[in-house]
Simulated scan of single mutants.
Amino acid sequence: MRRLVTLVAAAVLALPVGGSAGEPAAAPPPGQVPAGLRAAAGTPVCTVDDKRLPEVSGLAATDDGYVVVNDSSDVDNRRRIFFLDRDCAVDRTVRYPSRPRDTEDLTRAPDGTIWIGDIGDNDRVRETVALWKLAPGADSPVLHRVSYPDGAHDAEALLLAADGTPIIVTKDPGTPGLYIPSRALRTGQTTPLRKVGQFSLPRSTTSNPFSIFGRQLVTGGAVAPDGSRVVLRTYADALEFDVSGGDVVRAITEGTPRTVPLPDEPQGESIAYSPDGRTLLTLSEKGDGDSAADPVLLRYPTAHQPRPEPSATPSTVPRSVPGGTAVNGERPAESSREISGNFVGAVAGILLALVAIAGFAVRRARRRESGGVR
């Protein structure tokens, strides 16, 4: 897989990034990781050595530990919500009432409610995806099905707006889309999603196992405990945005991120803020092979610089209805920022999507052939 990705990346990187042949390349956009920057590795916190957790893709921090989920798995005891202590040892697990398809991210609300994004779709064939909601003290999560308005999408990032609205960020190469429920979620019903924007990933040179492919796909996200910042990650970098007026969508679609390099994580698909909001926490999937090292929870400093709040709340901040779903103050579906996109992402999008589908299929097939025992 990695060899194939590298070959595709090399071909894409050979393309000119100027407006036409012979023109100089455009200046790096704000938030880009400067060329030549030496990225610092994260500080180890603890090691996840439980054999049930080889493919952690969602992470949240609590006052006394962490909450994690694996992504799709054919092994029953891996399909759980895992609560870890501060040493990354499994303290307890919660079962799903029915089998999830592909749990890719989770986020924790201020009241302790856990939301799990069953939103992975490598082959883009799912008619619905799902959000699982685990209330504090509940024995099992509640299932909410949702559907995209414009066809299937693969996604690995789930966020919560200030009013509790779930926000799905897709894994579309280069220009991820943001979707929210169009009305209050109800059990036993499929709720249509509504697209509320998209944004362009800044260019990066951060080293990672998947080369350019790893810099063009959003694999996780989190909102700071005080709601003042939101972070999205790729396989290479963390992109942190300032949030004003509780509007997470506007922060991402209109803001300029600060980039925190996450160099050479084996397959980084999870990110969270520490409970005090001062650091970022990441956890990678375990590498292929029985001899691969156990995943290590890493800590990175944020690049946060406080900014003053505006004097008035923007009129486009969505109001909420029961259930926390934004329905008023709609944003335009597209803007000049969205249409412009990222050049590299636009050129490489189809190739990267094909590589993603083929690569992950091969990787998971190998794991199934191994018998799913580690």
Rank of each mutant, 00 (worst) to 15 (best):
D71Q: 00
S228R: 14
A224T: 07
R233C: 14
L352R: 03
G227L: 07
A40I: 06
V296Y: 03
V67D: 12
L13E: 15
L37S: 07
R299I: 01
S270T: 11
N70W: 04
H304N: 09
H144R: 10
V68F: 10
D237G: 08
S315W: 02
V69Q: 09
L283V: 08
G277K: 09
Q198C: 14
G371A: 03
Q267T: 00
D50I: 08
A353G: 14
V33Q: 15
P295W: 06
R307N: 06
A14C: 04
V8E: 02
A356V: 00
P16K: 08
A61T: 01
G345K: 04
L178Q: 05
L53I: 12
D226L: 05
G137L: 00
W115P: 00
A40K: 08
V218P: 00
F199K: 06
I114Y: 01
D74Q: 12
F83Y: 06
G188A: 10
V17A: 15
T206Q: 13
C88Y: 07
V68Y: 10
D123W: 15
G151N: 00
L4A: 12
D50R: 05
A184T: 11
L351R: 04
L106C: 13
C88A: 03
A292F: 09
N208S: 03
V373A: 13
R215M: 14
L84R: 01
P34D: 06
T219E: 08
A272L: 08
L193A: 10
A130T: 05
A361Y: 14
V129G: 03
L84H: 05
T191I: 00
N328G: 14
E269K: 03
P24Q: 02
F213E: 13
V362D: 13
L59Y: 04
V75G: 10
G371V: 00
D91V: 10
L131A: 04
A361S: 15
Y300K: 05
A251K: 10
L351D: 00
P100W: 11
A353P: 10
S72R: 09
T93C: 03
S211M: 03
V231F: 13
A14V: 02
G214C: 06
A162T: 07
L84G: 10
W115C: 04
D121T: 01
P24H: 01
L53W: 04
R229T: 02
V5N: 06
D87V: 00
S200K: 10
S320I: 04
G323M: 06
L13F: 08
T206Y: 14
A333L: 13
T103N: 11
D76R: 15
S73R: 12
V56T: 08
L280S: 01
V362I: 14
G372Q: 09
F210Q: 01
R79Y: 13
G164F: 05
R186C: 06
P318I: 08
G255W: 07
R186A: 12
T47E: 12
V231R: 09
R194E: 05
T313A: 14
V260L: 02
N70C: 01
S315Q: 08
D226Q: 07
Y273H: 05
V90W: 02
R258Q: 06
I252W: 14
L134A: 00
L239F: 06
D139N: 14
Y235T: 01
D163V: 11
A109F: 07
G42A: 07
Q198N: 10
P141N: 09
D123E: 12
L37N: 04
V362T: 13
A9C: 11
T279A: 12
